[in-house]
Amino acid sequence: MPLYGHRLDSRPTPLQWLQYREDKQWFLEDLPRRLHDKILYRPHFDAPGSLDDAPWLLPRFPHVRLCSGPLEARMLTCALMVLDHHGTTLLQALAANVPTIAYWDRSIWPMTDEALARLDLLAEAGIWQPSAEAAAAKVREVWDNPARWWLDERVQSARRAFCREHAFVDPKGPDAHIVSLLQRL
């Protein structure tokens, strides 16, 4: 979580990074303790001038384990993936049809109007949540059978619409190209 941007792009301000980091704690606090044993946490990479991520979060939640190694391989085995900001991993997960719940503060992670319209579709399907607490509530709701929720036509329709605009999907099949690519990494 770098505290300053290295170029002009849409990144949180230093105070917003602190809020973003606290959101992670609020998300985990809102989950039942029994789920902590099943969570793998993938931290931001350490960089000069950045906030501690895993060293700050994991001592607060000692039953949560660190996710290491190639993320793509882990992603494909997730029963349920939770993402706390938009980026490449969100696009990969949706294109690979990995059950995903995403949450972030729209004011901290700005998007174009076009992307916001598609994000609204994800919100209506329950994929995107506006806060850490709402995301934790969705996780509690679907935890026992994430696939049942994920494979619902309304959820899949929203995912496909988002992917058509923001994540390449092979015309031969909605997931074949991305899954194949991720498996080769």
Rank of each mutant, 00 (worst) to 15 (best):
W149N: 08
L119S: 10
V139Q: 01
P130E: 09
S131I: 01
W150E: 03
L122V: 12
Q129I: 05
R118S: 15
A135M: 06
L121I: 01
N145A: 13
R118D: 15
E153W: 11
E133P: 00
N145T: 08
W150G: 01
D120H: 12
L121N: 09
P130F: 08
E124S: 14
A135I: 00
W149A: 07
A132L: 08
E153H: 13
E124R: 15
A123Q: 13
L151V: 04
E141L: 06
D120W: 07
R148A: 13
A125K: 12
G126C: 02
W149K: 10
E124M: 13
W149M: 09
W128P: 06
D120Q: 10
W149P: 08
W149Q: 09
A147E: 05
D152W: 07
K138H: 08
V142A: 01
D144M: 05
R140H: 11
A134V: 04
L151T: 11
E141H: 06
R140S: 14
L116G: 07
R118T: 12
A123M: 07
G126S: 03
E153G: 10
V139G: 02
L116Q: 14
R118I: 01
V142R: 01
R154F: 05
W128S: 10
L121W: 10
R154T: 06
R154Y: 04
A134Y: 05
A117Y: 04
L122F: 13
P130D: 10
P146C: 05
W128Y: 15
D144N: 08
A125P: 12
K138I: 03
A147D: 06
N145S: 12
A137C: 07
D152H: 12
A125D: 09
A125R: 09
A125E: 08
P130V: 09
P146G: 03
R148S: 06
A123P: 02
L116E: 15
A134P: 05
W149G: 08
D152L: 02
P146L: 03
V142L: 00
L119Q: 13
P130W: 11
A134F: 06
I127D: 07
V142H: 02
G126K: 03
W128G: 05
E153V: 10
A123E: 14
S131V: 02
P130I: 07
A134D: 09
A117Q: 10
R118M: 10
V139E: 01
A136C: 07
D120G: 09
L121T: 07
A117V: 06
A123T: 11
W150T: 00
Q129F: 06
E141W: 03
V139I: 02
A117E: 11
L122S: 12
L116W: 15
A125L: 09
W149Y: 10
A134M: 03
E153F: 08
W149I: 06
A123G: 06
W128K: 12
A132T: 09
L122Y: 13
A147Q: 06
W143Q: 02
W143I: 00
E141G: 00
A147V: 02
R140P: 03
D144F: 01
D144I: 02
S131R: 03
A135D: 04
V142F: 01
R148F: 08
G126N: 05
G126E: 04
E133F: 04
D120A: 11
W143L: 00
A137Q: 15
W150D: 02
D120K: 09
W143M: 00
Q129N: 14
E141A: 06
D144E: 14
L116C: 12
L116D: 14
L119R: 13
